[in-house]
Nucleic acid binder design. Structure first.
Lengths: 134, 134
DNA sequence: CGGTATCCTCCTAGATACTG
DNA sequence: CAGTATCTAGGAGGATACCG
C-alpha cells in the first residue's frame, strides 16, 4: 500500500518527532528566537531573520501557528498589518530551543577541534594506504 | 557564482546551525537517546532505534563521531565488533536534545488541541465562504 | 503589505546489492 | 558483522508571478 502523500503523516510514528522538527527547523529556530524578544510584522521578521524567502517564512509561521506556538494578529486596515507573537506555549518552546542553540554555540569550538582531529585521522589512514581498493 | 555543492557548507552561514541539525536530525536524536543508557553495537543500535536503514545509521554515526559526540571502538576481531558510546561532549549534547524531546512529549497534547482548533477555524472560514476564488 | 500559486531544481532518504 | 556503492523517487525549498 502506498503511504500517505503528507510527509507529516508518514513521519508521525512518533508525533513528538514532528513537533521537534517544526521547532528545530532551519527557520523555525530563528523565528522563535526573534519572537522571544518582541512581536514582529511579517516583513520586519523577514528582514530580522535574513535570507528567508517569503514562501518559507509564511510556511514556517503557519506551521508554528497551527501547533499553537505563534499568535497571528491580522488587523483589518489598509495597507494590511499582521503582527506575530509567541503564545505562552510558544514562549516555552522558544526557550527550550534557544537553550539548545546557546549550548551548541558554546560548544562550537570543541566540535571544530573534534572535526579537525577526525579529518586528520582519516587523512593519515589514507596516506599510509590501509587496504584501499579503488 | 555557484554555491558549493556541499550542503553543509551552504548552510554554514551559522556554524552552530549545522551542529543543531546533526543532533536534532531524525536519527540523531534517537541514537543519542539510546546511547545515553549504555553503549551499543551497530546492529544492536539498529534494532533499538527501529526503522533506520543501515545507510542512514552509518551516516548518522559518522556525523556524530566527526562532531566529537560519539566514540567508535572497532575491535580487530572476526567477526567484526564495533561499539559505539557517547563522549563527554556527546553526553552533554544528548542530555540537551533529550531534554527538548521530553519537553515536546509533555506538550504534545496541547499541540494537538491547538491544531484541532486551528483546523476547525480554517474549516469554518471556508464553510462561510469568505471570498474563495477558485 | 502580506501573502498565494506555480514551476523547477536540487538533495536526501531509502531500497538494493555488494564487500572485507 | 559492519559497513560501502549505486540508483531512484519525491519532497523541500527557492524564483517568479500574481492577488486582495
Amino acid at each position: 500500500m502506498a503511504v500517505s502523500r503528507d510527509p507529516d503523516v508518514n513521519r508521525a510514528m512518533c508525533p513528538s518527532r514532528l513537533i521537534l522538527e517544526h521547532v528545530t527547523s532551519r527557520w523555525g529556530v530563528l523565528v522563535l528566537a526573534a519572537l522571544l524578544d518582541r512581536s514582529y510584522r511579517f516583513s520586519e521578521l523577514r528582514r530580522e531573520v535574513g535570507g528567508v524567502s517569503e514562501k518559507m517564512l509564511a510556511q514556517t509561521l503557519q506551521t508554528l501557528e497551527r501547533d499553537g506556538f505563534v499568535h497571528r494578529d491580522a488587523k483589518p486596515v489598509i495597507p494590511p498589518r499582521v503582527d506575530y507573537s509567541l503564545t505562552e506555549l510558544g514562549k516555552e518552546a522558544a526557550e527550550q530551543v534557544w537553550g539548545l542553540a546557546r549550548w551548541t554555540e558554546k560548544r562550537v569550538d570543541e566540535v571544530f577541534t573534534a572535526r579537525a582531529r577526525y579529518d586528520e585521522a582519516k587523512e593519515r589512514g589514507a596516506a599510509y594506504g590501509e587496504a584501499r581498493t579503488p
